[in-house]
């Protein structure tokens, strides 16, 4: 494509907040077909920056109970391996463990998933991606964290680059301990999660929305090059 460049990149000033801005996020002066020019700021213009809102459960108790039951029986897992534990997830779907029995299915897109499995240690870089994916899931959504790394840092507890406590960055419903937990432990984790959902305790999404500022502050504390909108719709 021999495409004429119809834009001009505006170099950002050297202020602190622009320190980690990547070139593709620089503002640019764009020439419209009619010759007018205007500024496009990728970070503001390409993304919706609305904050998440908590969604109240259904006011009718019975209905909510029924829906919670349905949610618990139909858990769609986001197939996004974040750490070493992702290798433990695949056997779940094989005949030996067959998580389908419990209504657990894998889904390749966050839009349709309900459960995000953080499978082990999270470096800061991965955390950023994990947050994006989590925010792209629709409420109600759940998080299951595998391994001691997500609980207290595990063997990476003093690493310069690995987080220690996942629940400071996103609400966690179930921790499955172990290094790494075996698929059986994961199945047990699913059972625990289902129980929680049925009890109406699976309100992680609302928790996240309600304490949004706190979570964001924690995330931003360690993710220094925050070159994305505050909430990834």
């Amino acid at each position: 494509m021999a495409e004429e460049k119809n834009y001009k990149i505006i170099q950002p000033d050297n202020s602190e907040e622009n320190k980690f801005l990547k070139p593709e996020n620089y503002k640019r002066e764009v020439t419209a077909p009619d010759g007018n020019t205007f500024i496009v700021d990728p970070l503001n213009d390409y993304f919706c920056d609305a904050k998440p809102q908590p969604h109240a459960p259904n006011t009718i108790k019975v209905v909510e109970k029924f829906l919670n039951w349905a949610r618990s029986q139909s858990i769609w897992v986001l197939g996004f391996g974040t750490g070493c534990g992702s290798i433990e997830i695949y056997p779940l779907m094989t005949p030996r463990f067959d998580a389908y029995r419990f209504g657990v299915q894998q889904r390749p897109t966050p839009r349709q998933s309900n459960l995000m499995i953080i499978s082990g240690y999270l470096s800061v870089k991965t955390l950023k991606r994990a947050i994006r994916s989590y925010e792209q899931m629709q409420s109600p959504k759940f998080v299951m964290a595998l391994g001691s790394c997500t609980i207290n840092g595990g063997m990476y507890w003093d690493s310069y680059n690995t987080i220690n406590r996942l629940d400071h960055y996103m609400p966690v419903d179930v921790y499955v301990a172990g290094c790494m937990p075996r698929p059986e432990a994961l199945l047990a984790g699913f059972m625990e999660l289902k129980k929680r959902i049925r009890e109406g305790k699976g309100e992680g999404a609302n928790q996240y929305a309600e304490n949004f500022d706190w979570y964001k502050a924690n995330q931003k504390k360690i993710i220094k090059d925050w070159n994305m909108p505050d909430y990834n719709w």
């Binding site: 969604h55 029986q73 999404a205």
Partner: peptide
């Protein structure tokens, strides 16, 4: 699932999936 030597989802799973999807809160 049986062909793959699994037990597979309950036969009413499509109902539940459907209900769950209609019950998603945020869109």
């Amino acid at each position: 699932a049986r062909v793959g030597k699994r037990i597979g989802v309950p036969f009413y799973q499509p109902y539940i999936d459907l209900i769950k999807n209609y019950a998603i809160r945020s869109q």
